[in-house]
């Protein structure tokens, strides 16, 4: 299936919710989702080490509520693709994404996941993980500092809490 089409459909789904009356329950649910992401450990390469360093005692990710890194995708709702995704690994990445239950989000961490990174002209590379799964937040860096990762997840938290406002921001209004 075409990943770009899938992303469009997801954004359109958010738009439908905007037209319906947004009740307090919905807002509360979105607040709760944003404050307790359960990431699935998709650490592939060097960015995974920075992701792990975010979880240790200096850049504590537990103060935000996201320290529960689940190994099984069936119990997670956020996939942080940290590291290089090669052509051999891409179908497995898609399969893990498909195994996650809704609602789910994807963060592409690092320049290899965002756009192929320094290995872009290699025969074994996919130019960016957004050809495989629809990505919500891109975090550049090689590897991004733990503070960058925290900022990226905070942006995602904003997107989950106020999907309409973020969509307007994306269109430059």
């Amino acid at each position: 299936m075409d990943v770009a089409k899938e992303k469009e459909l997801r954004e359109a789904e958010l738009l439908v919710e905007k037209n319906v009356l947004v009740t307090t329950i919905d807002k509360a649910l979105n607040w709760a989702r944003g404050h307790s992401f359960w990431p699935v450990t998709m650490g592939l390469a060097c960015c995974a080490i920075e992701m792990m360093a975010t979880g240790d005692s200096r850049y504590d990710i537990a103060r935000f509520g996201w320290e529960v890194f689940r190994a099984s995708p069936r119990q997670a709702d956020l996939m942080i693709v940290a590291g290089t995704c090669t052509r051999k690994m891409a179908p497995l990445l898609r399969r893990i994404y498909d195994q996650m239950p809704e609602p789910k989000w994807v963060i592409a961490m690092g320049s290899c996941a965002t756009a192929g990174g320094p290995f872009i002209d290699s025969y074994a590379m996919i130019p960016g993980v957004d050809k495989v799964v629809p990505v919500d937040v891109y975090i550049p860096g090689c590897p991004p500092r733990p503070e960058s990762l925290l900022y990226g997840i905070l942006q995602l938290q904003q997107k989950v809490a106020n999907p309409a406002k973020v969509r307007l921001m994306q269109h430059g209004k």
Binding site: L44, A45, G83, T84, T86, K88, M89, L92, F119, D121, S122, Y123, A124, M125
Partner: peptide, 14 residues
């Protein structure tokens, strides 16, 4: 193995 093969030896030639 090979799920992280990035082709560094070929990249080195360019």
């Amino acid at each position: 193995v090979g799920y992280l093969h990035r082709g560094l030896e070929k990249l080195a030639e360019s």
